[in-house]
Nucleic acid binder design. Structure first.
Length: 487
RNA sequence: GGCGGCAUAGCCAAGUGGCUAAGGCAGCGGUCUGCAAAACCGUUUUACAUCGGUUCGAAUCCGAUUGCCGCCUCCA
């Protein structure tokens, strides 16, 4: 089995071969910390989180680097508006970033460098670029000369000539070429600034990623990722800087996740449809969001709509219900037994469930197909449960099926909660409902049922239903749960 | 203007040359139940945008058409 990944640089699916056998280096562009993260950030974070989990599950060692951009124009502007230090603003939003990501079950990266902590690395790289003639200095500004770098445009698939035609008019007059971009910006009063050979100033946007990725992963590394919109200019420029400075190839594979729209419209502040992760988790359980975000291939555009989210929710509840049935029949899942990474290194004979799942994931991380398999498995488990779960042989089979299901789901970062906890959270109704009262009513109803007073029994059940409570009469008694309240 | 992507049933979404075109959601019918709920089974008129072409054979390859979208400017 071979993992194939779509490489944005070649616009083809390619067999993934790490530079060092079984040790993968990945750099993903993180966030600029000047505001709360939105659901687009969530998609990107979850997609790459899934990639990392998958590589590890397949037995690879992974060094995952994800940066924070903590100095740039937007941060400076926002800090001015809020009348606070840029560093305070950045720290505040770094904190909310972690909170949001942890809620979504996104694992921390191994290395999480900040631009402001790598000013020396950045200055060194700019220095090299100037020395090698790829950059020029005008006053206190340093520019990268795109004409000096022969393969400029190769990543994003565009030609310099085409870009000039579409270039904006308000080009910085100092630039030798309209597409030249800033490596180092001269300081303005009141802005964060550092000493440099070109006077006080701060780094341009792209250079931090070139400097930090090479510092932690080497001049050439395996995978560089980010949102689709970063291909140009950010990644194009990153690549140009790093390759010009180091004289070797930069990232071998470029991966870009597709964009999220909201009710079929592009998410933008002007349209007022900007959904932060915090807004989203107020309406939807984080696991529902995660399932939704992985329900379509990561490179395709995905529409964040009420109906899609509610479909994801129904699907996830179905799975957790099955897990709960399993808990009841064969006992709770032993978390210590959980996913011994690598979960997939052995036990791949090509026909079993895990192999099939692996096959889907190996095809450029086809999570949609993988989820299809998970739902198939759930149906299979339900059938077994409907049969006769008391037979030891079936119990053993159920236990294995659950292990398989959960080890696959874990790669997607799903099904990590206990069913009891998940269902209680998601099926929550009016919070003022008293447990004792509900149980008292259920006892009354059962008394009515025992004397076959169906009218009285049904009336009690209807009342409970109005309170948002659904009853299920099972062979060994009546259980109740809150009605799904659709967000 | 330049570059690129997408179009699969009521909705969401896999499948990129060959068995009955995954899976989910919703609806309907059935089994179960006192009735329900949950689960299971079945089902939802011709589901592969249109028109040509290549091929023994295409949703899948090629061309044209229509429609939608993204990037080219900060953006995940």
């Amino acid at each position: 089995m071979t993992l194939k990944l779509y490489n944005s640089a070649t616009r083809k699916k390619e067999v993934f071969k790490p530079i060092k056998n079984d040790h993968v280096g990945i750099y993903v562009c993180g966030v600029t910390v000047y505001d709360l993260c939105h659901i687009g950030h969530a998609r990107s974070a979850i997609v790459f989180d899934m990639l990392i989990r998958y590589l590890r599950a397949r037995g690879m060692k992974v060094t995952y680097v994800r940066n924070f951009t903590d100095v740039d124009d937007k941060i400076i502007k926002r800090a001015k508006e809020m009348a606070e230090e840029t560093s305070d603003l950045a720290n505040r939003y770094i904190k909310t970033f972690y909170e949001d990501m942890h809620t979504l079950g996104v694992l921390d990266a191994d290395i999480e460098p900040r631009a402001t902590e790598h000013i020396n690395d950045i200055i060194n790289m700019v220095k090299i670029l100037v020395e090698k003639g790829f950059a020029y200095v005008i006053d206190s500004m340093v520019y990268f000369s795109v004409e000096k770098f022969k393969t400029y445009g190769a990543l994003s698939g565009r030609k310099l000539e085409d870009m000039i035609a579409g270039a904006r008019i308000d080009v910085d007059e100092n630039k030798k070429h309209p597409m030249d971009f800033v490596l180092w910006k001269g300081a303005k009063p009141g802005e964060p600034q550092w000493d440099s050979p070109w006077g006080k100033g701060r780094p341009g946007w792209h250079i931090e990623c070139s400097a930090m990725s090479c510092k932690y992963l080497g001049n050439t590394f395996d995978i560089h990722g980010g949102g689709r919109d970063l291909i140009f200019p950010h990644h194009e420029n990153e690549r140009a800087q790093a390759m010009a400075a180091n004289g070797v190839n930069f990232a071998n594979y470029w991966m870009h996740n597709g964009f999220l729209t909201v009710e079929s419209e592009k998410m933008s502040k002007s349209l007022g449809n900007f959904i932060t992760i915090r807004d989203a988790i107020r309406l939807y359980h984080p696991q529902v969001l995660r399932l939704f975000l992985l329900s379509k291939h990561y490179r395709s555009p995905l529409d964040f709509s009420k109906t899609s989210l509610s479909e994801a929710k129904s699907g996830l509840i179905k799975i957790y219900r099955t897990l709960q049935r399993l808990d009841e029949e064969i006992g709770p899942y032993d978390a210590s037994n959980k996913i011994k990474i690598p979960a997939f290194k052995e036990a791949v004979n090509g026909k079993d469930f895990k192999s099939t799942f692996l096959g889907a994931m190996d095809d450029d991380l086809n999570t949609a197909a993988g989820l299809g398999l998970i739902f198939d498995k759930v149906k299979g488990i339900n059938r077994l449960l409907d049969k006769s779960p008391t037979i030891d042989k079936i119990k053993a089979k159920l236990s294995k099926e659950r292990n398989d299901l959960l080890s696959c789901a874990n790669i997607l970062g799903l099904l990590e909660e206990t069913p009891a906890k998940f269902l209680e959270n998601i099926l929550r109704g009016a919070s003022d409902i008293k447990k004792d009262e509900v149980e008292k009513l259920i006892r009354e109803r059962n008394e009515a049922r025992s004397i076959k007073d169906w009218a009285a029994a049904d009336s009690i059940r209807d009342n409970l239903c109005d309170m948002g409570i659904i009853l299920e009469d099972k062979p060994d008694g009546t259980v109740w749960r809150f009605k799904t309240n659709d967000a």
